[in-house]
Simulated assay, not measured.
Amino acid sequence: MSTKKGWSGRYFEDFEVGDTYFHPMGRTVLSADNSWFTLLTQAQSPVHFDHYYASQTEFKRPLVNSTFIVALVTGQSVTDLSQNVFANLGWDEVRLPAPVFEGDTIYSKSDVLELKSSQSRPNVGIVKVLTQGYNQDGKVVLTFKRSMMVYRKGQGPSIPRPEIQA
């Protein structure tokens, strides 16, 4: 038997404008996710954690905290886009075209829009993507453009792996 190297992510040179990545992991949003995230971030709108209050709104149920969805979809994209990130530069044009409810399952995809060399750091390049989050019905619930500095091959830190002792 041979040892197989695990996925170590893409480097700047691995991206091409026009590439589309369907990120592999979906995630069902639980009531606990919504309540905890809302309370941990002190975004204390009762529409996110008070079911009785939310039942009196036009949606008749709690809305999922939108910043949780931004964080979730960003996290879903890491394995394809930013596992070798030097730094995130920003999220632009964040749009929330449809609500997310507890029990919805969120999936995501990203399209590479632009690649350019960094003027200040020769060991990284700048990758700009358009990312969409969508629910189990295929309805888009989030879009944003994200820019990040990604290491060039052989220019980033390595992940140390200790030897296993028998």
Rank of each mutant, 00 (worst) to 15 (best):
R61K: 01
P46W: 11
S55F: 09
E58S: 14
A43V: 07
P62T: 07
V47I: 09
W36K: 13
V64E: 01
K60Q: 15
D50H: 14
P62K: 09
Q56V: 13
S31E: 11
T38R: 04
N65C: 13
F37M: 05
S35H: 07
L40R: 01
N65F: 15
D33Q: 13
Q44H: 12
D33H: 12
E58L: 13
S45R: 02
F37N: 06
N65E: 12
Y52P: 02
N65K: 08
R61E: 09
Q56P: 02
I69R: 10
S35F: 09
D33S: 15
S35M: 07
D50C: 11
Q44A: 14
V64N: 02
S31M: 08
A54C: 06
P46G: 10
N34L: 03
A32N: 10
A32D: 05
N65Y: 15
D50M: 12
S31R: 14
K60H: 12
S66F: 14
F37V: 04
N65I: 06
D50Y: 12
T41I: 09
F59L: 10
S66N: 09
Y52C: 10
F49S: 07
K60C: 14
F49M: 04
V64L: 01
L40Q: 00
A32I: 04
L39I: 04
A54G: 04
L40A: 01
S35D: 14
W36H: 15
S66T: 07
Q42K: 09
V47H: 01
S45V: 07
S45C: 03
I69W: 11
A32L: 07
Y53A: 11
T57E: 09
I69A: 09
L39S: 07
A43G: 07
T67K: 03
Y52L: 10
S66A: 11
L63V: 01
S45A: 06
Q44L: 08
I69M: 09
T38P: 00
Q42C: 07
F68P: 00
L30Q: 12
L40W: 00
D33T: 12
A43D: 08
R61G: 03
Y52H: 07
T57C: 08
Q56G: 15
Q42R: 12
S66K: 02
K60D: 15
F59K: 13
S45M: 05
F59M: 13
S45Q: 03
F49P: 02
Q56Y: 11
W36Q: 14
A43T: 13
N65M: 13
V64H: 01
L40E: 02
S45N: 04
L63E: 02
E58N: 14
Y53V: 06
V64K: 00
F37S: 06
F68I: 00
L63H: 03
R61L: 05
Q44E: 11
A32F: 11
L39A: 06
H48P: 00
K60W: 10
F37A: 07
Q44N: 12
R61Q: 07
P46S: 08
F37E: 10
S31A: 15
K60S: 15
T57G: 11
P46R: 07
R61C: 08
T67A: 12
